[in-house]
Amino acid sequence: MSYKSHYRHFFELHPQQLHCAPHSHHYWPDVTRKAQLEYWDDSAVGVDHKWDKIFGEKVPHVQQRLAQLLNYPAPEQFVFAPNTHELLYRVISAFAQDQPLRILTTDSEFHSFSRQVRRLAERPQVAVTVVATEPFDSFASRWSDALAGAAHDLIFCSQVYFNSGVIAPWVETWLDQVPSDTQIIIDGYHGCGAIETDLSRVADRVFYLAGSYKYLQAGEGCCFMSVPRDCSLRPEYTGWFADFNSLAKPQQGPIDYANDGFRFAGATQDFSALYRLAAVLDWWHQEGLTVAQIHRHVQTQQQAFLAVLDVAQHPVLNRSRLLHNGLAEHGHFYTFELDSAEQVSELAVQLQQAGIATDYRYKRLRFGFALYHDPEDFHVLTQALSKVG
């Protein structure tokens, strides 16, 4: 089945492009354009009272949709922010700055975390243990050793590594090694909406971070985090949304927090992205489109892509350069590691000139796959690869 008709507006503006960067900048389906206008109209009608609709209708609706998507038992535990970094830092800010903070993570975390934790590590009381994800086939064992080797206050690990597309060992496989007072954050940004995710058994134990920019297809500005029920952390980095229901009360005495996920909320933000996310999730619901179906569709595109590569026999861009830990279950993008950053940037530019959009980081060139791809789309690669070095 082809889903191209749902992305008409983006395709009309890029008619000659094979967009292989949805893991970075995903095309938005047409339903999001109507949602953007709906936000404008609601703002015009409601003015100051638009918040009544946003918090009374839209936020609970998206919370319900996310709970359905992730098999999460408590929709009210989802909190929203313009980006994951805000939510991440609110969790970090719940730890006293003058006390030791021991963090366990990997060397394949996105910059929102990796940059922040490098800065935190400049404090003498912060200790960061970093486990290399490669070689992938031994990571689970080495991660287990790190868990057993020392106590940690915070564990941060991706669901799908952004720099390879490899799926990490799911938290349930190692959760029993973690003390109950250790906070766990799973970065689901490259997994949510792409890989089937069931949070039902870990809902009261982990924070799950994700957002609408990648596979949820609604663009930037709507990230979210699930917060374990009965969480009593008191983030120092806090905003007025975090105790929204008490705004009419005197703002004196101890700082109070909401008793749900909004204890990690911030302050005023543009909720147009939440409208767009609602439109995408409603579209999936109306179509009966599940993450499992999306995943199978993408796997078909990935097989078609690899078949073209095998025929092309390009000296650089080929299966031998593909990073993976078994292709039966892999994220929705392929990453090829080449010899140098210069080689990657040159190849990416040549592909762009041939109408093929990719993206790259250092020595790694990434090709993403989406609902709006069909197997025949990748035939254009054959001619393009015959002309690029």
Rank of each mutant, 00 (worst) to 15 (best):
F271A: 04
M225W: 02
Y72H: 15
V308E: 15
R142W: 05
P100W: 02
S180K: 08
E346A: 13
Y237F: 15
A74H: 15
Q77G: 01
Q353I: 00
A357F: 10
F162C: 02
H379G: 12
V298Q: 06
Q383I: 03
F224K: 02
R201P: 00
P82L: 10
A44V: 06
V311D: 13
Y362Q: 14
A35H: 10
T105E: 02
E376S: 14
Q252R: 13
Q125S: 06
Q16W: 02
V126C: 11
T105S: 07
P73K: 03
D98N: 15
F241G: 01
D52G: 01
L37K: 12
L199G: 06
Y189T: 07
V298L: 10
V166I: 13
L381N: 05
D181T: 08
N325P: 07
D282F: 01
L154I: 00
V380K: 13
Q252F: 12
A328T: 11
E12H: 09
H295V: 00
P228L: 01
A292T: 06
A384H: 08
S158E: 12
E122Q: 15
T129L: 06
H330R: 09
T32G: 03
Y3C: 01
E329L: 11
P254E: 15
L175M: 13
L247K: 12
A121P: 03
L277Y: 05
L147K: 08
R142N: 11
Q352F: 06
N83W: 04
D256Q: 08
N318D: 11
H379Q: 13
R296P: 00
W174T: 09
S144I: 03
D243T: 02
W170D: 03
T197W: 15
F162L: 00
K363Y: 04
A121I: 02
W40H: 04
V171H: 12
F333L: 12
V280N: 07
A273L: 10
D198E: 09
D30M: 08
S272F: 06
A370S: 15
E287G: 00
D359E: 11
Y189H: 10
A292H: 03
G239Q: 07
